[in-house]
């Protein structure tokens, strides 16, 4: 049993600007915990969380793997979330390395076929189409949940980069809800990028049907390296 990270240093005022861990966070922790043996065997050296928010998930991953066994990189578009993530890491003695950035923007150039574990609990809530990107540009708490059309507008910008980022044998964990059209997403990731996937956990929480999907890159495959910023705009 891996203890849930200590978040007692975060106050109500922090949660006005940073997403407070909720059911979608906890299902992700549970999925990681149930995979903990596999994850340890992988001997991951580089872990990347997109949108780390409070820092709860990467801290938990650090407790599974050991604080000095891997580099824990996190990005968040929200600067307050970056500070909270660092603080949560410190509180639990897991050093988290934060970059205030959108998705993996500043890392794409260097981290080709290099990341052993990627984690993304995206803004998955379906909203009116333009809300997702204005929320991202606001760099506040709305960016943690507003997902635009099908709740997929932000996720769809990141998915094309997953295969290139992952090291051979690496895993990508994604939180999703039914409205995100999970089966179609899995099919696209297989057809276009050759990533196999599996729903590793499903749970109903209030009105949401939550899933954690694990995408895996086979050991033999290296994805062709791309070096173009324009591909940031690719949408599946």
């Amino acid at each position: 049993m891996i203890p849930t990270p200590d978040l007692s240093h975060l106050k109500a005022s922090d949660y006005e600007t940073v997403y407070e861990p909720a059911e979608d966070t906890f299902i992700l922790l549970d999925a990681l915990e149930s995979d903990s043996d596999t994850l340890k065997q992988l001997r991951p050296r580089l872990c990347l969380e997109i949108g780390s928010g409070s820092g709860c998930v990467s801290t938990f991953l650090g407790s599974i793997l050991g604080s000095s066994e891997a580099l824990f990189l996190c990005t968040d578009i929200n600067p307050h979330a970056c500070s909270c993530s660092v603080a949560t890491g410190l509180q639990n003695k897991i050093p988290l390395n934060l970059v205030n950035a959108s998705l993996a923007d500043p890392l794409l150039w260097r981290l080709q076929n290099a990341v052993d574990i990627i984690i993304f609990n995206p803004p998955y809530v379906p909203t009116v189409a333009d809300e997702a990107w204005t929320a991202q540009a606001d760099r506040g708490i709305g960016g943690a949940w507003a997902g635009g059309k099908d709740g997929m507008e932000i996720t769809n910008v990141f998915l094309p980069h997953v295969s290139a980022l992952l090291a051979p044998g690496g895993h990508f964990y994604l939180v999703a809800v039914t409205q995100n059209n999970i089966v179609a997403m899995q099919q696209r990731m297989k057809d276009i990028y050759g990533l196999e996937s599996q729903v590793v956990l499903r749970r109903r929480a209030g009105g949401e049907h939550l899933s954690v999907i694990r995408f895996s890159k086979t050991l033999a495959v290296k994805t062709a390296v791309f070096h173009s910023n324009t591909s940031n705009n690719e949408v599946l």
């Binding site: 950035a101 923007d105 500043p106 333009d130 949408v235």
Partner: peptide, 30 residues
């Protein structure tokens, strides 16, 4: 790219809005 309190700021709201433009445009058209 400034570093403040140990955190590098590598995000740009302008980039994000540009990225969202196709969506903003389609919702405006609708």
């Amino acid at each position: 790219y400034p570093i403040s309190n140990g955190i590098p700021n590598m995000a740009s709201s302008v980039t994000l809005l540009i990225r969202g433009l196709p969506y903003l445009a389609s919702s405006w058209l609708n």
